[in-house]
Amino acid sequence: MKRARLGPWIAVILGAIYFLVPLIATFEFSLRVRRNQYSFDAYANVLGDPHFQASFLYSTLIAFATIVVGVMLVVPTAYWVQLRLPKLRPVIEFITLLPLVVPAIVIVFGYLRIYNSSSWLPLTGSPASTNVLLVFGYVTLALPYLYRSVDTGLRTIDVRTLTEAAESLGARWPRILFTIIFPNVRVAIIGGAFLTFAIVIGEFTFAALLDRPAFGPYLQLVGANRAYEPAALSIIAFAITWACMGLIQIFGRDRRTGVAARP
């Protein structure tokens, strides 16, 4: 059964064409700024645009904030549920999967109604508090991936025994969490973090509807007004996504065993 037949090759080649042609076409398109001559002008325009720099920086900061808040929320919860409240696990799992059921646009619609400037908690009242709302919204979006990743990571180590061992040595629980649990689910956290980054960096719906100067709305603005720069941005976004996935692969390899962690 080792001989390759024609069918699989055809499938792979057709697949490669479908997936590579848009990338090639986009790249080619991004070089067309000057007549009759390919150039990287579109990239220079984009990278030199202060709005690009500002919005990209903004989204990067928001992404980091999302990762920090997400990890601080998810890791202690997952740890605590495994250690103390295993019966709660189905409930927590169900909640973390809800963002796959409720579309992002619906969630943000709810935010705009509940947290508007005349409500009990006017989070959309000022730019600073809207930034906080945006971060929390992104944590919600990242919840299914982050929780699953961390929970799986925790399941591969014996949380209870590690905790009891640390307790018997006199450690208190914040110390247990930071020196024992976090390092042991490092791979899972890093994997979840890069995935979160890839989701957040170009996210459009939340940022646009909350009216924040993020990278997503900037992309939309450029797309509506420029010809070749969107293609350059598309290539840049693809490179960022690729980098995130590549870093997951690199960090996903467990240093001790050299075996890739299971997603």
Partner: peptide, 27 residues
């Protein structure tokens, strides 16, 4: 690996890529 990347390559950049491919001026 490519599937990991492409499944996350959605939204506006994807729209731009397909405009550059199959739009009226696309390659």
């Amino acid at each position: 690996t490519f599937s990991g990347v492409a499944s996350n390559f959605a939204g506006l950049p994807l729209a731009f890529a397909f405009l550059a491919t199959l739009g009226r001026m696309g390659l």
